[in-house]
Design a protein around this nucleic acid. Structure first.
Length: 315
DNA sequence: AAATCGTGGCG
DNA sequence: TCGCCAAGATT
């Protein structure tokens, strides 16, 4: 029995039009040319919730410094976190470090090439495992990221936005849309992602430039508004903001930072090396319990270490 | 399974 | 200006 068609539009038409658009308009990103599986993995981890434009320069420096998992696994955690810089979510850097260690020990330094093995690596979830299998090893995997989810929601379902959380139905749909041919499936995954990133964007999509405007269910439905209100990401006044400010201090410091400096603006002025970062932390006017909570959290997460001399990045 | 976890650019 | 959002993962 043939499965129910996802839409009245033949998938072949979508494949052809979106793939052709990609081959014409795709961005020239460094990890798309002659890139090792390690380079692909690094890019995918960095791109988790961080825009391409911010990742690119860091990725290039990273690959020059640590061309292989073995090179990277040998680096001290503090250097890893400094190299990560301001990409955000620094725990990703630590997980990548742990992944490199595992790659060295279990896979003799070669990034594994199966979805299941990739999925078992620290910091690698369903999206990243599928993406590395596809883009590093040319495998036919169902890649579903925020861009692809949005394109599918509009193009096929006719809704402004995908559901708040990834659903089984979305995975089924994505699997149905995936070309049977291996090479075409790899191209399709990259193409739809790129379409979501450049044309079918979350805010003010460029529908007039879209290669599948005529096939779009959302357009056909009259571009209905979202059926729910995306919940915002609180920031000002949160522990996350404090953690970020503390991490900036620790990254800039070459020696342990005594806890007093994190509190006392007067004492902080004497510590020229981290004056700017401490100033930002002090500007937050964080209460004692919150700073304590943030520091404890950083230590628990392995992002900071406490010794009698003060806080510092992990060795 | 809802909450948590950074950062900065842009509409 | 300020809220939204970005190639998610983890617990």
């Amino acid at each position: 029995m043939p499965t129910t068609a996802p839409s009245r539009v033949p998938t072949e038409v979508l494949h052809h039009r979106i793939n052709a658009w990609f081959q014409r308009e795709a961005r020239d990103l460094p990890w798309r040319h002659d890139c090792s599986a390690w380079g692909i993995l690094v890019s995918e981890i960095m791109l988790q919730q961080t825009p391409v434009v911010r990742v690119q320069p860091v990725w290039e420096a990273w690959m020059e410094r640590w061309p292989t998992p073995a090179d990277f696994a040998a680096a001290p955690a503090a250097e890893v976190l400094r190299a990560w810089g301001r990409l955000g979510y620094p725990r990703r850097a630590l997980r990548l470090h742990a992944a490199a260690t595992e790659i060295l020990q279990k896979y003799d330094g070669a990034v594994p090439n199966t979805y299941t093995e990739l999925l078992a690596l620290p910091g690698v979830g369903t999206y990243t495992a599928a993406a590395v299998a596809a883009f590093a090893y040319g495998q036919r995997t169902t890649v579903v990221d925020t861009n692809i989810r949005r394109v599918h929601a509009r193009l096929v379902i006719g809704q402004a936005l995908p559901a708040p959380a990834l659903t089984a139905a979305e995975m089924t749909l994505a699997a149905q849309l995936l070309p049977e041919d291996r090479d075409k499936s790899v191209l399709w995954n990259a193409s739809v992602m790129e379409l979501g990133a450049l044309i079918c964007t979350a805010r003010s999509p460029k529908c007039e430039q879209c290669p599948v405007f005529e096939q779009c269910a959302w357009i056909a439905a009259g571009q209905p508004e979202p059926t729910y209100i995306p919940k915002g990401q609180p920031w000002a006044g949160t522990d996350r903001q404090v953690r970020g400010a503390v991490m900036a201090v620790l990254r800039a410091a070459s020696s342990p930072i005594h806890a007093d400096l994190l509190w006392d603006a007067q004492a902080a002025q004497l510590h020229l090396e981290v004056t700017a970062e401490l100033a930002k932390l002090h500007q937050l006017n964080t209460h004692a319990p919150q700073l304590e909570r943030a520091l404890a959290g950083l230590v628990v997460d392995g992002l900071a270490q406490l010794s009698p001399a003060g806080y510092q990045l992990p060795a």
